[in-house]
């Protein structure tokens, strides 16, 4: 019920924004987000934009995921090296990754 989807505003006429939703052009109300600009991404819920998405915050989170991916690849490589060396499994690298992850979660706070 509280489903809301991110869409980009491609046209604005007064309080009405045009967006593409699942391949269909649709008009949504901008009555709750008067600050929305052309090109902004907004969360749309029941035909209304309810929030203008913060691109910097989104990029920050995606950056975290990219870092996770890198550290995962590294951990996999380490684990496979370890396995080759001693036939034992190791979860090495986890401790480093944990402090990275909690830092970034902290950054999205506030």
């Amino acid at each position: 019920m509280c489903l809301a989807v991110p869409v980009r505003i491609i046209e604005i006429k007064g309080q009405v924004g045009r967006v593409e939703l699942g391949g269909v052009l649709r008009d949504i109300s901008l009555a709750l987000t008067p600050e929305a600009q052309l090109g902004d991404f907004v969360l749309v819920h029941t035909g209304f934009a309810i929030s203008v998405l913060d691109e910097d915050e989104a990029q920050e989170t995606l950056k975290l995921f990219a870092e996770l991916e890198e550290s995962w690849d590294q951990a996999e490589a380490d684990a496979s090296d370890d396995a080759n060396r001693s036939k034992g499994l190791s979860a090495s690298g986890d401790a480093d990754a944990s402090s990275d992850a909690s830092d970034v979660v902290g950054e999205t706070d506030a």
């Binding site: 809301a4 969360l43 929030s51 998405l53 913060d54 691109e55 915050e57 989104a58 920050e60 989170t61 979660v105 902290g106 999205t108 706070d109 506030a110």
Partner: peptide, 8 residues
């Protein structure tokens, strides 16, 4: 409270 949905 942690805001894990900073973009929205």
């Amino acid at each position: 409270v942690i805001n894990s949905y900073g973009r929205g």
